Computed example of a mutant assay.
Amino acid sequence: MNGPFEKWYDSAGVRGGVRRMYVGETEEGKVFYPQDQVPYLAHEALADLTAAQRRALTIRHLYQFLLSTTHLETRIVNTTAERIANGRAGLDLSNRMRLDAFKVYCDEGYHALYSLDLADQIAAATGIAIPPWDYGGFVDKLEEAGRRLLPDEPALVPLLQTVVFETLITAVLNEIPNDPTVVDVVRELTRDHALDEGHHHRFFAQFFHELWAGLDDRLREPVAHALPALVQACLTWDTEPIRASLVMSGVDSVTAAAVVADAYAASGANPHVCRATVRTFRSAGVLEVPGAEEAFAAHGLL
């Protein structure tokens, strides 16, 4: 059976892709980020925002999307990819899987580069600066969730977090490329990212099967019960940059906090987005653990 990276040297973005350049399409009525995917813009408290204020908010939302991903790719995924590639994941893995992990590492570094590159191009073209926020805030929260859920397994948690993110992200990335209202460069870059991540999904699904098969019996129940919460944590936005962006657009701080609280009160797991991730866990046998199916259902994953 062909592996997920059988044609990597010819097809990976970092090997043969082009640098995506913003050339200006907003005069055609296109947007940098679709407003219907910015949850807070429909809030009644923001009904009086001007078109310019809304535009600035969508651009900063795009920055958060690009740069949050950049932080997660380098701080979470590549940390795990390096451990797998260098045989430090605690598993007896084939050389092919280790080589594939290095391919993941190369891909993710390139994704981080071109995400920041595009944000920088858009900032220069629009005059909407990239705010000096730590866009890795949700990475910190993801790590905190892992420590809380599996406090005695610090080496295992990052492996699980990476599997969750890498089996979720393709579904997250598939929305924007199909939206003709979005500027082409954002659609093209997101499509590039999604193509690579499809291969990463296959790799990490295989890796999880190896990880689960080699897991100590005493750990299977706590891991199975922790996974739904890790999925939810991975899909929960860091809302502090959003609150700050609203304030930067002239919304008072009290209203900004209320809008964010309302818009993200139910954020987290989405059964459609999570379907492939849950399928990976089910095929490995996770949901056969007593109480696991109930835990996944309680988090809205089934």
Rank of each mutant, 00 (worst) to 15 (best):
Gly24His: 04
Gly90Asp: 10
Gln64Val: 12
Arg148Gln: 09
Asn178Cys: 11
Ala51Gln: 11
Tyr22Glu: 06
Pro131Lys: 01
Gly285Ile: 03
Ala52Phe: 11
Ser245Gly: 04
Val289Lys: 08
Val182Thr: 04
Phe281Ser: 10
Ala295Glu: 11
Gly291Gln: 07
Ala261Ser: 09
Ala85Pro: 12
Val38Cys: 04
Ser115Pro: 01
Ile59Ala: 08
Ala112Lys: 05
Glu188Asn: 15
Glu221Cys: 05
Leu99Ile: 12
Glu240Val: 15
Phe204Thr: 04
Ser68Cys: 11
Arg54Val: 08
Pro39Ala: 06
Arg243Gln: 13
Leu142Ala: 13
Asp217Thr: 15
Pro271Asp: 02
Val254Tyr: 03
Arg83Tyr: 03
Asn95Leu: 08
Tyr264Ser: 13
Leu66Cys: 08
Arg75Pro: 07
His200Lys: 09
Val223Leu: 03
Leu116Met: 12
Met248Asp: 03
Ala233Val: 07
Val186Phe: 07
Arg55Cys: 15
Ala263Ser: 14
Lys103Met: 03
Ile176Asn: 04
Leu93Glu: 12
Pro132Cys: 15
Ser68His: 09
Leu93Arg: 04
His111Glu: 04
Val260Leu: 05
Asp10Arg: 06
Ala269Val: 00
Phe281Arg: 08
Ala284Asp: 08
Gln64Phe: 13
Gly13Leu: 01
Leu67Cys: 12
Arg218Ala: 14
Leu160Glu: 00
Ala224Met: 08
Ala263Leu: 09
His199Leu: 06
Trp8Tyr: 02
Ala276Lys: 11
Ile128Gly: 03
Ala85Asn: 11
Glu143Thr: 10
Asp196Leu: 02
Asp36Gln: 11
Ala81Ile: 07
Ala123Tyr: 01
Val289Trp: 09
Ala266Cys: 08
Asp100His: 05
His61Ala: 14
Pro154Phe: 02
Met21Leu: 13
